[in-house]
Design a binder for these strands. Structure first.
Lengths: 205, 205
DNA sequence: ATAATAATAGACAGACTGTTTATGATTATA
DNA sequence: TATAATCATAAACAGTCTGTCTATTATTAT
């Protein structure tokens, strides 16, 4: 997070990358639980002991992938200028959500591996945490920006949690179904559902 | 599902119940992954080999708990008369959702164990499946009842999936947070969010 | 009362984990 | 390009868990 970045030994970054890639592909093939350390190192073409030089266990390796991917996405979202970030219509409306779906599409394998709940330990859990955290901050800023000082009828925490859960759930379904709609359209669906609710979908004939 | 119900040997139902209870409590204590078969049988005060007389592995035991609980809830919901089931206001409005939150509150331990994503294999996955399936059917009937024949702007599948994900997510958060609001109120929060959307929450001053 | 069924302890091979040790290979840097 | 530091490696290890089998005892339904 804030080390002076003594650039790591080339062997180290290579090894770590190979291990991450091996784990992701193996999860998709046989499911998280079934993957052994030896599977990983065999696919990465590394000695089994090498694994323990870098990670305590499978979980730590996977968590690294998650944090890395979350950082990458967060960096993209942060770049959106504050003026357009909260636009509900017109330019830039829904941009953060669109970025999420596009980032997921570009890293579909990793996302699938991360979100597939069939045996993901605290990996999925961590992803949830990160999303809720982000949603909470976003919701809070949104609220403030509207000059609303009084508490909403529904606690902010509930709102943020609702947002995170529906976003992650929608992502899971979309990825597992083979991304049947393009990212932009999926983002639009989601935005409509989460902002205007189910009722609005049936009301507009 | 349709066996003539040759009532099982008393020893069998006792053993199975003890195993289910032991697993649930152990999951809450050390997390799904960390629970071994021996842990389970020791807590249930049964021989380890006995376990294998009834279940192939931990997963099958847990899946049985899930199916059983889902059946119980479904039986309650099915009892709601069709007239009030789809009421959006007035009598019976939101009853199914309220039932879910109340059932979760009454079986909080089991629900926590089921929903805690930290290592739940395909258990959580199965729960998702069941919920989506139910949400899909419900949404379809709702749609039909409104006499709407044309497809909605958003595919029904997306809607059902959205509903299921937000419901399960909200449940998880609520249970893990120690049920900070009573079931009825939580159900009302959820109903408001899912039916009218986030925007409505900030618009009503 | 008794035949059928269920539970048990004990022993087993096989798989995986995480650590240690001693050795060989690659890298950064001067 | 020499060399000291770092990294990767194989081999061997004890420890844990799994799932199966066998022979024996206990409980149940009728």
């Amino acid at each position: 997070m804030s080390t002076p970045a003594q650039r790591p030994d080339r062997r180290v970054s290579r090894t770590r990358r190979l291990l991450r890639e091996a784990l992701t592909s193996l999860i998709l093939e046989k499911g998280y639980d079934a993957v052994t350390i030896e599977d990983i190192t065999r696919r990465a073409d590394l000695g089994r002991t090498t694994f323990y030089l870098h990670y305590r266990d499978k979980e730590h390796l996977f968590l690294e992938s998650i944090e890395q991917s979350a950082d990458e996405l967060a960096r993209q979202i942060v770049q959106i200028p504050a003026e357009t970030l909260f636009n509900e219509n017109g330019e830039g409306a829904g941009l953060p959500i669109a970025l999420v779906f596009e980032h997921a599409a570009q890293n579909a394998d990793l996302y699938r591996a991360m979100l597939r709940s069939e045996g993901s330990i605290k990996a999925t859990s961590r992803l949830r945490e990160l999303t809720i955290q982000y949603a909470l901050e976003f919701t809070r800023r949104w609220w403030e920006r509207r000059g609303l000082t009084s508490e909403p009828h529904i606690p902010l925490e509930v709102i943020a949690q609702f947002f995170a859960a529906s976003l992650l759930g929608t992502l899971v379904w979309w990825l597992e179904a083979g991304m049947p709609y393009p990212p932009r359209q999926m983002a639009a669906f989601f935005r409509r559902l989460v902002l205007d609710g189910l009722r609005s979908v049936t009301e507009s004939h």
